[in-house]
């Protein structure tokens, strides 16, 4: 067996160079994720009055989060988790059939075209997309007009400025994302597995339930996790489509930042959000196989 010591100098240097390959990513993560996160954690343990830091190492902001206004922030957290779970489940339900049809029913030459069409809405700013949904869902929008035209509604129907509108806006966005991750996973499943199951007498439903679905779970898990993380931290969609009829946690955080510049309280609330995301990661971790997507 050849050893590294026996190799020419340049070849021996290669592993050392390779060892440094992740360095840019590590530096990037440290600079733009770990350090800001530590700074946020530190700020969350301070208290400010009249623009000056008056306390260090206090949990007062976490206490405020738990108790203010009879638990108004806790309710915002609950709303956020509810909306995010609904969005994640609906997005999976919408995305999976699309990805399945794309992967197994559409000829290979059309798959690329359909994938491009699928991501087309990504090319529009999601702020514009949210306002567009608001117009579609308004009393003068196409849905209201269609319902009236079909005789299903007596008068204008306004569907915007509700939780349902927020969910719809989210699902429109995340179903596309999930379709991509699930599709990428489905096309990696060897055709021979499904064919072998069929040869052994499995019905198409059994092939799906016993072979395809279990093997596609990593793609579903990655997409669902991304959906969860992105949706629970999103401020713009609920702000535009929800009409502030209820408060989600990112909106509550923005109130502290934008209205009173209370960065310590906003940081504490953000750390709580971070804890929820971490918890979600731990729940999803078993199925998160990035190499499969």
């Amino acid at each position: 067996m050849r050893t590294i010591a026996g190799l020419p100098m340049t070849t021996r240097a290669a592993p050392r160079l390779l060892a440094w390959a992740p360095a840019p990513a590590v530096i990037w993560t440290a600079l733009f994720f770990i350090l800001p996160l530590l700074a946020m954690a530190l700020v969350s343990l301070t208290r400010r009055e009249r623009g000056q830091t008056v306390d260090l190492w206090t949990f007062a902001n976490y206490g405020t989060f738990l108790t203010q206004g009879g638990g108004v922030f806790l309710e915002a957290l609950r709303n956020s988790i509810e909306v995010t779970l609904i969005v994640t489940v609906l997005s999976v339900l919408v995305a999976y059939p699309i990805a399945y049809v794309l992967a197994y029913r559409v000829p290979a030459r059309w798959q690329r075209v359909l994938l491009v069409l699928l991501v087309l809405p990504f090319w529009t700013s999601y702020v514009i997309r949210s306002y567009s949904w608001l117009l579609v869902l308004s009393e003068k929008g196409i849905i209201s007009l269609a319902l009236q035209g079909l005789g299903l509604a007596d008068g204008p129907v306004g569907l915007g400025n509700t939780r349902g509108a927020t969910v719809l806006g989210f699902v429109h966005f995340f179903a596309m994302l999930l379709t991509l991750t699930i599709y990428a996973n489905l096309v990696q499943i060897r055709e021979s597995y499904r064919r072998a199951a069929a040869d052994l007498g499995a019905s198409p439903l059994q092939v799906f339930l016993r072979i395809t679905m279990p093997l596609s779970l990593p793609g579903v898990a990655v997409g669902a996790f991304l959906t969860f993380v992105l949706a629970i931290g999103d401020y713009v969609t609920p702000q535009i489509l929800g009409g502030s009829r209820e408060l989600l946690l990112p909106q509550a955080i923005m109130l502290q930042v934008g209205r009173t510049a209370d960065f310590p309280l906003a940081s504490a609330m953000s750390m709580v959000l971070m804890a929820v995301v971490t918890l979600a990661y731990l729940l999803f971790a078993r199925h998160l196989r990035m190499d499969r997507v």
Binding site: S138, E139, N161, R245
Partner: peptide
């Protein structure tokens, strides 16, 4: 609706 200027403008214009 409770919202920023574009949101409340939109509400007035679209009949919400």
């Amino acid at each position: 609706v409770i919202g920023d200027v574009p949101t409340v403008q939109n509400a007035l214009v679209t009949g919400a």
